[in-house]
Design a protein around this nucleic acid. Structure first.
Length: 427
DNA sequence: CTTGCCGGGAG
DNA sequence: CTCCCGGCAAG
């Protein structure tokens, strides 16, 4: 046999994933313990997948795409949802086990330190803000682990802050614009951004009064409806973006939902309206507003239906849940990222890819995205998917039972007769 | 409920 | 080894 390599029956990867559970005593293993071990190990095995390096032909390589998705989704999590572990990490002022260039979590939130961090921007000083590298030239091969972790923890550190003083804010805003511009012009894949094809620093910063009036002075015709049924999620591909693509940014703040077409506008809106309303300067770090808007891309089609005003938010919904796509669409978003998960039948991926739990080919390029939404909830969806393992989908493939029927059991292949995995109609 | 199939036992 | 089946999990 292959000890410690089987997850148990119906393992998430079709019995192809190793189990981290030691096999205590085969003969004395009761059903209950077996079942319990399965349940536990499934969840856990996604965390620490133990896939022996190619010593078993049945082993499948676990794709990296979930992480990529995770990064690209730029998961945003409210403090409420912060895992306790990370919470304790934050509370203890411990530097998280992350590349500090991406994220540092300091406990005190010293404003002086913040300033230092902003000025050096790539320094390794402890800061309560997210330390976004000012320039990462040609780092397209950024470690996805680091990115993922950075995204998670940076999002966690950016819980809704109360406010910031205006004077301090301007300084922060300036540097924020600076870094933001660099980041936008940077490769989008490195930061989870979808870079908007805008020249860096193109618009001059508007006057503070204009900023203050930004909420009401927003052109109302920029309201875009997030047609979540048609939301497709892709990896950033800015170069392929067509000219007809409209980009808008929706504020994810609870009870807001404002949509602006300008990145700076939405940042300014978030910063001014939501982040920096009271005091507490240190909570309002630059780049924090990145986590409170979501980019909406819409192809230039005459499909606008709704009035431009933002939809009335449901009072019971948080920003996360409000921005959450419907289960269907988010599922599709996730699935579209993972070739090993079957797409829903109504989308453009060919049905052949539906059985891609076997990890055959990467997902086909989908050429008809109508709109895209970077939203908080995709990360959560990803987490849910992580805990709901990639199971062996009941495929369309015929099985002996289906083909011949129970009455012709003698025609079945032997494994089918033995209630094993069918080997005649492999899918 | 059905279906696929893993784990395990009997011979 | 073959053969069979309990039982789990997904649909």
């Amino acid at each position: 046999m292959m000890p410690n390599t089987r997850l148990g029956k119906r393992s998430p990867f079709g019995s192809l994933v190793g189990s981290s559970c030691p096999e205590p005593n085969k003969t004395s293993t009761t059903k209950a313990t077996r079942a319990g071990q399965q349940g536990i190990s499934r969840v856990r095995d996604h965390g620490d997948l133990k896939v022996p390096a190619g010593n078993n032909h049945k082993q499948k390589k676990i794709p990296e795409s979930p992480r990529i998705l995770f990064v690209s989704c730029q998961m945003k999590m409210s403090r409420r949802r912060r895992p306790r572990l990370i919470d304790s990490c934050l509370s203890q002022s411990q530097c998280c086990l992350l590349p500090q260039a991406y994220f540092q979590c300091g406990g005190a939130g010293d404003s002086q330190t913040d300033n230092v961090a902003q000025s050096t921007c790539c320094s390794r000083s402890i800061s309560s803000c997210i330390d976004v590298p000012r320039s990462r030239t040609a780092q397209q091969e950024v470690d996805m682990d680091e990115l993922m972790a950075a995204m998670v923890l940076s999002s966690l550190s950016c819980s809704p802050p109360p406010a910031l003083q205006v004077s301090a804010h301007k300084q922060t805003a300036a540097s924020s614009m600076d870094c933001g511009a660099v980041e936008l012009s940077d490769n989008s894949s490195s930061s989870g951004y979808w870079s908007v094809n805008r020249g860096p620093r193109s618009p001059a910063p508007p006057s503070p009064t204009a900023e203050a009036n930004g909420r009401s002075a927003t052109p109302p015709d920029e309201g875009l409806d997030m047609d979540l049924d048609q939301v497709l999620f892709e990896e950033p591909a800015p170069r392929k973006r067509r000219n007809s693509l409209k980009v808008a940014y929706q504020c994810l703040w609870p009870s807001c939902g404002k949509v602006l077409t300008s990145l700076m506008g939405i940042k300014r809106h978030i910063r001014m309206v939501h982040l920096c309303q009271g005091g507490e300067h240190e909570r309002c770090s630059h780049s924090e507003e990145d986590f409170y808007y979501s980019e909406i891309n819409q192809w230039d089609e005459p499909r606008r239906q709704s009035p431009p005003s933002p939809p009335p938010p449901s009072p019971s919904c948080s920003a996360l849940s409000r921005s959450a796509p419907s289960p269907c669409s988010s599922l599709w978003q996730v699935q579209s990222e993972h070739s090993y998960q079957a797409p829903p039948p109504s989308h453009t991926v060919s049905p052949a890819a539906a059985t891609s739990c076997r990890l055959t080919a990467p997902p086909t390029s989908r050429q008809e995205p109508v709109s895209r939404v970077r939203s908080v909830s995709v990360g959560e969806q990803w987490l849910q998917h992580q805990s709901a393992p990639c199971r062996r989908i009941r495929s369309e493939a015929k099985k002996c039972r289906k083909v011949y029927g129970i009455e012709h059991r003698e025609l079945w292949c032997t494994p089918c007769r033995w209630k094993k995995a069918c080997q005649r109609f492999l899918d």
